[in-house]
Design a protein around this nucleic acid. Structure first.
Lengths: 144, 144
DNA sequence: TATAAATAGGATAAAATTATCCGAAATAAA
DNA sequence: TTTATTTCGGATAATTTTATCCTATTTATA
């Protein structure tokens, strides 16, 4: 469904959110350990999130990644997915047609649309904050 | 969402169904043209569908691919997807955790489950016949 | 100011997916 | 029985995705 890059990006963002809510910056090393991902690859994805203004990075000693506290509540999964995978998850045709819309639908256009709209809805209505809270309270997990 | 292989497989199966309903066998060449896919790659995917008993192939002169008429109605998209992509679309964790279930859920487990169940439902309840009829009547399209 | 600690980013490698090519095997028809 | 046709299947290649490595740059602090 999502690319590996996207999976790592989402989990990393949640972990950063958890730590920023407690005023702690985290390094790619720590992040990769906590979300069980390849460190250098994860660092690259973090760079993309920084470029898209989802998170902030601070270089140099005592540096690391953090996220503004107000952004923890307002940032939605959809934004992270978009920053990493682009909009293909929304806009691509389920069967790969170049043009696929109401006027020229692929065989599964209508049925597919229902599922995708639900996915879109889910991503647009799920904030980092919600996900971070569940991890903090031990309800959900970032690895294993 | 689906792999290219799966997209080609679904479209090829629909095209074969259309033609088999009119007692015509079709070649990989014809199929690839009609669904706008790479021919040799498509042929490989067709082989997989043959091995999984979704379609039949007849070698030699006047040979080609066909599908039993009764199978056109009973074959569901889910079977084609499973034959090509396996069950990862159903069973994989949305964030790539090795273990992700009610007892040890990833951060999006519940929300993701809703979407995936809907996808599963859609695939399990859509037959080749329905899709082929829409193509025949010009309501939907296999390429462009 | 020098040093150590961090992220940034380019180059490269590995793995998976997508795609092509070609000879072998099977089959219908001449 | 020979020939032409057609799928099968292995080898290989191209592309994309995933992953690693190394150096440059930035920054806190001693």
């Amino acid at each position: 469904m999502f690319s590996k890059a996207c999976e790592y990006g989402i989990k990393a963002a949640i972990f950063i959110a958890i730590n920023s809510s407690e005023n702690r910056r985290v390094s790619p090393k720590e992040i990769a350990e906590e979300i069980d991902s390849p460190q250098a690859f994860t660092a690259k994805i973090l760079q993309a999130l920084v470029r898209h203004n989802m998170i902030k990075s601070v270089r140099g000693a005592q540096g690391g990644f953090e996220i503004d506290k107000d952004k923890i509540a307002t940032t939605k999964l959809s934004q992270i997915v978009y920053a990493i995978d682009g909009d293909k998850i929304y806009n691509g045709c389920g069967l790969g047609l170049h043009t696929c819309d109401e006027n020229h639908p692929c065989p599964v256009h209508d049925k597919f649309k229902v599922v995708r709209d639900e996915l879109k809805d889910m991503l647009e209505n799920t904030s980092l904050e919600q996900l971070a809270l569940d991890i903090k309270s031990g309800v959900s997990f970032l690895k294993v």
